[in-house]
Design a protein around this nucleic acid. Structure first.
Length: 357
DNA sequence: AACCCGGGGGT
DNA sequence: ACCCCAGGGTT
């Protein structure tokens, strides 16, 4: 790997810091978690912002803080209520890990979010980025907080041509930030880099003529701003076909089931779904009687849904069905009426089926 | 180091 | 259709 130390030494670090922090103070967006950046506020916002856009997060953050205004409130909450507030935001393990970690803060640290890298980094769901963000933004410590924005900005400024998908490149950039971060205002410095990445130094069509760091930028100097950063592409998703059953009993209630506590969409709820790679469609009724103990009548297909995850694609054919006979086997779900069912957290793919009930 | 884990929006 | 997003956990 190329040694970027000489390029850091060529930077006018004082001017870089001043230009960046001045720009941030003038141009930053007024975001809810910036109004009172307590460690808890910063923490919750950073977890929500992982792989998620600012505009998407804003209403979730506001609802979350109304419901769980303090670490204590979140620690005591029912996990299903936390997931319900998170419903639709995705990466649900973030919510479960956050609650676990906040419970640890309440029990081990008397409710005070740790202010050192070691204890902070040991909390569930707090990785290198989130740790650095809390330390710099809430505690004004000069720690790097390297997210996708910072990777892109720094790779352009210093003409880093390594693959930014690699861990090694992130560590390289952390080292660079440690060398150039403002000791006077690490919060504005780190947030400034991220804000710059979001508003100016964008992935496509960066607005270089508005950039406060133009004079420092090697990519701009060599007209490489559209070329950098270099990122290896990920492989495409696998398709998985399923039949989903909206099953109504004689009382008009609908069968729903809780997903396993580990893996994809853990602890969320769904309508029963059957892999069409494992069960042939023509034998679903028989298969269902064996597995669930219920004799069904298949009414009609009500919709089909294509749901894209980052790593796979669900192809869902949704059918209405009616219970004709039998007793539901143990741990196979529960029949609920509509008003009870909508209290539960569903992944978006299954939320889309609720209108067809 | 490679893979798993959601959902939405931009182009 | 493809890329991107204020990443972290597991193996």
């Amino acid at each position: 790997m190329y040694d970027y130390q000489s390029r850091v030494e060529e930077l006018d670090i004082e001017a870089f810091q001043t230009n960046l922090i001045q720009w941030f103070s003038e141009k930053h967006r007024d975001l809810p978690w910036r109004q009172d950046p307590t460690p808890y506020h910063v923490w919750v916002s950073e977890i929500m912002l992982q792989q998620t856009r600012v505009d998407t997060v804003i209403p979730y953050y506001q609802r979350f803080m109304e419901k769980f205004p303090t670490p204590d409130a979140l620690a005591k909450a029912d996990e299903q209520d936390v997931l319900k507030v998170w419903e639709g935001l995705g990466y649900y393990s973030r919510a479960r890990n956050l609650q676990t970690a906040v419970q640890e803060v309440v029990e081990e640290y008397n409710g005070k979010v740790p202010d050192n890298p070691k204890e902070l980094g040991n909390l569930k769901g707090v990785g290198p980025y989130t740790k650095g963000a809390i330390l710099s933004i809430a505690y004004q410590q000069p720690e790097p907080a390297v997210d996708g924005n910072v990777m892109r900005v720094i790779s352009r400024i210093l003409r880093v041509e390594e693959d930014i998908a690699k861990q090694k490149t992130r560590k390289l950039v952390e080292g660079i930030i440690s060398d150039i971060i403002s000791r006077e205002d690490p919060s504005s410095f780190n947030q400034g880099l991220m804000e710059l990445g979001a508003l100016v130094c964008k992935p496509k069509n960066p607005v270089c003529y508005e950039c406060p760091l133009q004079d420092h930028c090697q990519a701009y100097k060599h007209d490489l701003q559209e070329t950098l950063p270099i990122k290896s592409s990920k492989k495409k998703q696998k398709r998985k076909p399923y039949a989903v059953l909206i099953i109504r009993n004689e009382k008009g209630e609908i069968l729903v089931q809780k997903r396993p506590e580990k893996g994809l969409l853990a602890n969320l709820w769904q309508f029963p779904m059957i892999s069409l790679e494992e069960v042939d469609f023509s034998s679903i009724i028989q298969w269902f009687r064996n597995e669930y103990g219920l004799q069904l009548e298949l009414d009609q297909q009500v919709t089909n849904i294509k749901h894209v995850f980052s790593h796979l694609v669900w192809q869902l054919d949704v059918y209405a069905a009616t219970v004709k006979d039998g007793t539901l086997a143990q741990d196979k779900g529960v029949f609920l009426d509509y008003s009870d069912l909508i209290q539960l957290p569903f992944p978006v793919s299954h939320q889309k089926m609720i209108p067809f009930i």
